[in-house]
């Protein structure tokens, strides 16, 4: 006789994380805090983009930053030097943040005091895309040296993103990077994705990106 009992579970492994992420989103909406989840591969320019964005917007928006890395505090220090509060979240070896870690970070930051909170996810185009962090919008950065085929190779990352910054356009002339192709590949994954070609080093293209950020922040926070 089989002395075991089978219990049917039929539950997605991501169900808990998704439920937690939805709860975080509702809380942020109530507190009028717009959270974006910024993702890219390592070295695409997340921190440089953030530093410039903060410098441009810090007089009109209260901005807080959560830096997620496997280890070290170099990014949080760089952001703090740009003049805003930044906390460091260590993922303890994990390749992504999940909703639980995001919530701890929001608590530590005191997220309710900010209009805009940016979560700088671990540099990785695969794992962060799988886990909903509770952010209102997902934003990815793809840099020119990485190549225009990335939306084909990492479909989920581009599928979950609402906006895409194409960074380092100052070096376009040196790479076989096809801007039209990358735009069409990204739209294949996410038809309504907003695409901003920028250069974080020189500030080129930042007006359009910051306008989007301003509009989305005030739409979420219930402003004009």
């Amino acid at each position: 006789m089989d002395n075991v009992r089978v219990i049917e579970v039929k539950q997605s492994v991501f169900a808990d994380n998704n439920a937690e992420a939805d709860r975080i989103r509702r809380q942020l909406k109530e507190n009028k805090t717009f959270l974006i989840n910024l993702m890219s591969s390592p070295g695409a320019g997340k921190t440089t983009t953030l530093k410039r964005t903060i410098a441009d917007l810090k007089d009109e928006l209260r901005i807080g930053v959560m830096e997620a890395d496997i280890d070290s505090t170099v990014d949080a220090e760089a952001i703090a030097a740009a003049g805003t509060k930044a906390i460091q979240i260590h993922t303890g070896g994990m390749c992504h943040l999940d909703a639980g870690m995001t919530e701890q970070g929001l608590r530590e930051l005191g997220a309710e005091d900010y209009d805009l909170v940016v979560l700088e996810n671990v540099g990785n185009l695969v794992c962060p895309a799988e886990f909903d962090t509770g952010a209102a919008k997902n934003v990815a950065i793809l840099s020119v040296p990485e190549g225009h085929d990335k939306p084909l190779k990492y479909p989920l990352m581009f599928q979950v993103c609402h906006a895409l910054l194409i960074n380092k356009i100052d070096v376009l002339a040196y790479f076989d990077f096809d801007m039209e192709k990358v735009i069409s590949y990204a739209k294949m994954r996410s038809p309504s994705i907003r695409i901003f070609p920028v250069c974080a080093k020189t500030g080129e293209g930042f007006d359009a990106w910051e306008d989007w950020l301003r509009t989305e922040t005030s739409a979420w926070n219930g402003g004009v």
């Binding site: 006789m1 002395n3 075991v4 009992r5 089978v6 219990i7 579970v9 039929k10 539950q11 997605s12």
Partner: peptide
């Protein structure tokens, strides 16, 4: 290219086995 995934990205816990009442 007007295609989408019907199934294949699932990651589900289907069922578990636990010791029966006798044990």
């Amino acid at each position: 290219g007007n295609t989408w995934l019907l199934q294949g990205n699932e990651f589900m816990i289907k069922e578990i086995e636990v010791p029966g009442p006798e044990e």
